[in-house]
């Protein structure tokens, strides 16, 4: 009786596998995809990190357009590249982009792409302030803050969802294969963006860390290192600091960040020249 049951079960299972060969292939493909993403997740090579960032950037640009002013784009790239050249990851293919939105906004993608909003750029008063903002984002990339945040969320949020390869292929169709966006890493970036992984606030410690590093990077690049402090003072006025009214209330308040910098800056700026360039005039020539 027992044996018969086993035979029956076997008979019903085996033909099923044969019958649904197509589904089996599909499942195998899914498993492969997961494996690929898992591999990428486990140990991101620099190339994977860049591809992941490209996937996220492409998605961000799908939601928010680039600002049409090419001079502005080139200007921001020169400031950013100069600062990034003084970082520990100077060799990354650093790209900077201004998106056309009035929202105050700046964020970094793994692999060296930094996006700022025209709304933020327009509120700034000098090139040293812009350098401070970009340096903060560059510091996040150098420290791989976003990468590790995305990686730690990926297992649950992305691997569970599969479909990464499909997302990659969708971009491939739309924009050609020029960027290798079909790679598992870029597909994971698209998926990460869709799931809003990069929208999540980073750890407060990471933000303070990036602020402190930004001061160093701006100073190394020859800018007045207090540029970022002015920007934070500007944000304090705008944001209703500490009021908790913002949906970004998980982010350290500008006043707290200024307080942290007051503690760490003296040691950093100790031996710097008293007056370093702010380059207000050059900034005003480009940002109108």
């Amino acid at each position: 009786m027992k044996r018969l049951l086993i035979a029956l079960v076997a008979a019903s299972v085996l033909p099923a596998a044969a019958q649904f060969g197509g589904l089996g292939n599909l499942l195998n493909k899914g498993v492969e995809t997961v494996k690929k993403v898992q591999e990428a997740n486990k140990e991101f090579s620099t190339e994977d990190e860049i591809q992941l960032g490209n996937g996220i950037t492409a998605s961000v640009l799908g939601a928010s357009k680039l600002h049409p002013d090419q001079n502005l784009q080139r200007y921001v790239n020169r400031v950013g590249k100069w600062v990034a050249m003084h970082s520990e990851r100077a060799e990354l293919p650093w790209s900077f982009g201004v998106i056309d939105t009035e929202t105050i906004n700046a964020f970094a993608m793994p692999g060296g792409t930094v996006i700022v909003s025209s709304g933020l750029v327009r509120q700034l008063a000098s090139e040293s302030e812009l350098a401070g903002v970009l340096a903060h984002e560059i510091a996040h990339v150098v420290r791989k803050h976003q990468l590790s945040a995305i990686q730690s969320s990926m297992n649950s949020d992305i691997l569970a969802g599969i479909g990464k390869e499909a997302a990659g292929q969708a971009i491939g169709r739309r924009g050609g294969d020029a960027f290798g966006l079909k790679s598992a890493a870029a597909g994971a970036g698209v998926e990460a963006a869709k799931n809003g992984l990069f929208l999540r606030p980073l750890d407060r410690g990471m933000e303070y860390d990036a602020d402190r590093m930004a001061i160093v990077l701006a100073a190394r690049s020859g800018y007045d290192p207090y540029g970022l402090v002015s920007v934070l003072q500007l944000l304090a006025q705008v944001k209703g600091d500490g009021g908790g009214a913002s949906i970004f209330d998980t982010h350290p308040a500008a006043a707290d960040r200024i307080g942290e910098l007051e503690k760490s800056m003296p040691a950093i700026v100790d031996r710097l020249p008293a007056a370093m360039p702010q380059l207000e005039a050059r900034f005003r020539q480009t940002v109108k």
Binding site: V60, S64, A170, F179
Partner: peptide, 21 residues
Amino acid sequence: IATTGIRGLSAEEMKNASPDA
């Protein structure tokens, strides 16, 4: 307002965005 280092794009906007290569 997203301050420096964070994001002003809403989760909804990102969900509905298709990547622009």
